[in-house]
Amino acid sequence: MENIIEVQHLSYRYQDTDERPALDDISFTVKAGEWLALVGHNGSGKSTLARAVDGLLPFSEGTVTVGGIKLTPDTVWQVREKIGMIFQNPDNQFVGATVEDDVAFGLENRQISRAEMVPRVKAALDEVGMQAFAQREPGALSGGQKQRVALAGIVAIAPDILILDEATSMLDPQGRRDMLALVQHLREEKHLTVISITHDIDEAASADRILVIDDGKLVEEAKPAEIFAQGERLVHLGLDVPFTAKLKQALQDRGITVPAGYQTTTEMEEWLWQSLSNT
């Protein structure tokens, strides 16, 4: 697989006088079609990093290449064509008076003709299950519905890359699960590359690979199971401790020897059941 994103030695300071850079010599690549999770505690620099990739930050050192195009002030619009971003608070990203106007906004910006726009908006709303709400006012929707509309806006412009910046953090548990399932579905159908910035353990578990950012530095890069094996330390990385890790810690504290490494709930259930039956 080709690399759709290449970041080399990226550094950024919000102000030239800042002692500590917000991003400090970060390098990584993302393969086309990959789901990458960016984790780190609040203020670690993960959102800053996503913004740099989308050309929203005038970074001082390093290079960002997206789909073979090196990000410069001249190419920033070409790069942004390839990326759709969804932010934490859906209320901050609505511009249209109705749901369909809002979905059409990105197409209008790209000077798509009305004849083409109308079916694309309809198809995008169908894709996220929001066609029935086309004429509604975005402000009156629930949080989960708002994020679906935001996703429809992205489906309409058909980018190669979707960046979710804590896009599920304001949703209730059901809304979060629905949103993740929808992203997973769109990713397969549209061959999207997904970068999700998250504190949610289930969202991070959906990823092929996790990058851990701390103090503007890339401190770890591994598969979810390897990251989750760190147990209590995960809280410092800005993630929840998975339930199985909490339970293992609690058993260990009570003198029970537990298997090393991360276990899924199914593996943990199997191991416990075997152990309990083993009399």
Partner: peptide, 14 residues
């Protein structure tokens, strides 16, 4: 909670 579960598991542990 994980602690309550662990307490009961210990009681049943071979």
């Amino acid at each position: 909670t994980a602690d309550q579960l662990a307490d009961q598991l210990v009681q049943r542990w071979p």
